[in-house]
Amino acid sequence: MSLMKMNKIVYILAAIAFFPFTSKGQNLLDKLNNEFPDKPIYEMATFKTTRLGLGHSVETRKKGALEISWYNRYWNRPYGETQFFLADEVNMRFGLDYALSNNFAIGVGYSTWDEVTDGYLKYKFLKQTKNKKGNIVSMVALQTLSMTKNDISTGLYGGNPDVTNYSFTTQLLIARKFNPKFSAQISPFFISRSNGSMNVEDPKNQYGLGFGARYKVGGHVSIVSEYFSVFNPLKSVKTYNPFMIGVNWELSHLMLQFQMTNARTFAEDSFITQTANNFNFHDGNFHFGFNATFVLHTNKNKL
């Protein structure tokens, strides 16, 4: 072998020796970053509760979650017998909500003051994605049904206690989580009734738009607000659009909501279109709301 050949071999061997050090200059963590699968990541917890405050949010619980809820509204009478302890009147709703799948939920409830039984079906058909491509909003279809024989609470229906009045609310909930703290929701709704109002001037079907938002002020606390605008309000009774501002606080399995509102009732058709007082601090108008929801997991993940 000539000297030249020897030299070449030495060069090549040197190249072998140094090659790994030059090409592996890339950081190991950078390498791992390229290894993550390119799957869509969905936003979670646009709102933390299935109800923003008054109405539904786009949130659905994961499969097997049972929510036991107790909603309250307290208010004072403007006149008459007004000397009750703390508050003159209370409306309570006892509810059960169950998630049949991660996207499909059902629920029932009963409100004491207006004696309304209500139920709903809720299906999340679009989920906001975190990655750049994908959905910019989450969308939920909500269908509720409420029924009552009580015709005193609103005076809307004819005075026949033998007839059950059914009301149906169809709502499309569209929400976006803009950043980890701020989420907003817009919800067109359509309300129809089995029995019309006793006043023929009143619309049988009503529609409008709901607005809601939350702002997280801490890991567990957020400020929420909601407003519903009815486009064709009742004519026989003066009604006002419901408004709510409140605080949502979650403690492990317990979600607490504290709110100031003018809405007295809980069923969608009732509080959206039949709130007969405006939002202010006068007796009879000011309502303090307190909702407690306990989440029970009926099926647990295997680890």
């Binding site: 619980r61 890991g219 997991h297 993940n301 680890l303």
Partner: peptide, 15 residues
């Protein structure tokens, strides 16, 4: 993955 799904949400969202 947590045994309870709500824990997963709280872990990611609040902690």
């Amino acid at each position: 993955v947590f045994k309870k799904n709500l824990m997963h949400e709280h872990f990611n969202e609040s902690y």
